Computed example of a mutant assay.
Amino acid sequence: MGGTEHLTAEQVGATLVLTLNRPEAKNALSLPMLVGLHDGWAAADSDDTIRSVVLTGAGGTFCSGMDLKALADDGRLSGEHYRDRLRADPDLHWKAMLRHHRPRKPVIAAVEGHCVAGGTEILQGTDIRVAGEGAVFGLYEVRRGLFPIGGSTVRLARQIARTHALEMLLTGRPYSAAEAERIGLVGRVVPDGTALEKALEIAELINANGPLAVEAVKASVYETAELTETEGLKLELERGWPIFATADAKEGARAFAEKRKPVYRRA
């Protein structure tokens, strides 16, 4: 499935598992990692054998954000041999971090260990979030005199209560998995070492459903988020009604009547 030296990509059934793979640096962002993420999202969008994506990190860590050591040394991320990819698409890093791209397939985050700074920013671009009990979250940028430019000043207050969003953004303090769950940043907390397993279980439940319906539901949720209720309901019908005319919808009803599992064909 491709990948780079800092990003592994493996298809498990109908799920694409993208693993941030730079554990010696707590999976700090690098150009190879960003290129691998970008290509992974593109593969998921273009390959219809993939019905969901799980994003996780190697070595018991999700992502510690920007590589501050590299930036302090020469202002560059590691992996200069990928610089031509960034020149060809100056927006590549923002797409990789899900700031300027939303995959059409559901994305589930499986978080262990540190998920801070850019890690918490990438997290906000995912759809469903599972964390190990020992996971740590936080937007540390202000502690370093930096700005969380990966989208957090826009997204976070739309995903959790504004008071919690502003506390996280302005204090730069760490948050435990339990607190992240309490404020709604993650959906569930599981024993350490089992986040990926639980994420794959959730992915399997999604994969068993009609793919056209799943993608339309995800699109509708995001497209209507900032609309009035009246506008949103109108758009929901535009997204939803065509699904009822698909062969998959007929197969779902037929399978129910025949008491068997449906076989969906994206038609």
Rank of each mutant, 00 (worst) to 15 (best):
S176K: 07
I160C: 04
L169S: 02
G184N: 11
Y175H: 08
A178L: 09
T163W: 09
I160Y: 06
V154H: 11
T171A: 01
A157L: 08
P174M: 02
I183C: 05
A157V: 07
A180F: 09
G150M: 04
A177S: 15
I160V: 15
R158T: 15
G151S: 11
R162S: 10
A177R: 03
I149F: 04
M168S: 04
L170N: 15
G184E: 15
L169R: 03
Q159P: 05
G150F: 02
H164E: 15
R155H: 12
I160N: 07
G184K: 11
P174A: 06
T153Q: 01
S176A: 08
Y175C: 02
E179H: 14
E181R: 15
L156A: 05
P148V: 03
Y175G: 00
T153F: 00
I183H: 11
I183A: 10
A157W: 03
T153Y: 00
I183D: 11
R173S: 14
L166C: 05
Q159Y: 09
I160L: 10
E179L: 10
E181G: 10
S152Q: 03
G172H: 01
T163Q: 13
E179A: 05
P174C: 02
I149P: 00
I149R: 03
L169D: 01
G172L: 06
T153P: 00
R158M: 14
L156P: 03
R155L: 13
S152M: 07
G184P: 13
A161C: 08
E167R: 13
G150Q: 03
R158Q: 15
L170C: 09
A161H: 14
T153M: 03
R158D: 15
A177V: 12
T153G: 00
Q159L: 12
R158A: 10
E167N: 13
R155V: 10
A177N: 14
A165N: 10
R173P: 02
